[in-house]
Nucleic acid binder design. Sequence first.
DNA 1: CTACATGCAAATAGTTTGCATCCAT
DNA 2: ATGGATGCAAACTATTTGCATGTAG
Lengths: 153, 153
Amino acid sequence: MKPASRHCCDEKRQDISPATDRLRSRDHKITGPRRAILEVLGKHRHPMTNKEILAALPSAQCDLATVYRSMHLLLKMGLVQKFDFGDGTARFELVLDKAQRHHHHLVCTNCAKVVEIEECFPEALEQKIATQNGFRAVSHRLEFFGICPECHH
Amino acid sequence: MKPASRHCCDEKRQDISPATDRLRSRDHKITGPRRAILEVLGKHRHPMTNKEILAALPSAQCDLATVYRSMHLLLKMGLVQKFDFGDGTARFELVLDKAQRHHHHLVCTNCAKVVEIEECFPEALEQKIATQNGFRAVSHRLEFFGICPECHH
DNA sequence: CTACATGCAAATAGTTTGCATCCAT
DNA sequence: ATGGATGCAAACTATTTGCATGTAG
């Protein structure tokens, strides 16, 4: 995945107040970096790496370590979802409502274009896998890869 | 995933000659390290990290870099399959016959026990996802996570 | 005021690579 | 003999952490 992911640049940006409210309610401070990071995530609604988030931050910016720490916090609070496209770099997406909580992606292995996928691994099948093996609290990690329309001549 | 993955130690070890034959046929040398690595993979039939492979090598061993280079080669030759359990470390499994080519795993997030899963994402559904988005050559990466029987008291 | 958050730099961990030497063919 | 393979060390990338300082509440 060489080029930075392509997004159909940033439609509907989200209101991040539900996120800041949640942070405040659990005694976390709403600092400049945190607010800026949430705004970036609310604006770019695609999986972003920590470096991409940092680069998208308005002028002043903050330290990369702060982005990492913020993502840890947001992840623990359930405010972002973490994705793994198999290239050794974590990506994050803001989660503000239940609806968008669990979903997957279709990634172009040539240009890194990302499409959000609503289909999911069949619940009944997952349940069967869990039961057959005596596992509890089973979840899955699923991403699709292929060549996008624009990349096959 | 703190502890090293637990395996129900190493049943049926596989004959690796199909692999060495294939390497030779494509003008790759069968060196000591390569043979040893293939034997380790044939013996431990579970996803192994490069470090685990190195550690499992008989006495003399070789350099970690050689393990990495060997896995690249074996992957390119289609002789191993690469898995990503989301902990930032690649894992590999020997692939000697078509049957075992594509499969998934159920991983205990507590003790790292790994169970091989035969179920797969429904082909028709994947095809639909590909078509709907105009993608070609679509594949998927899928792993299951949960708590194994021995880890829930 | 005070605990939590941040910046900075150093430390980790996984993986890759340059280069001189070695060895399978 | 000879080009690919290896060992060793250094380089890289992503991520984490210690510590002194800064600031939200």
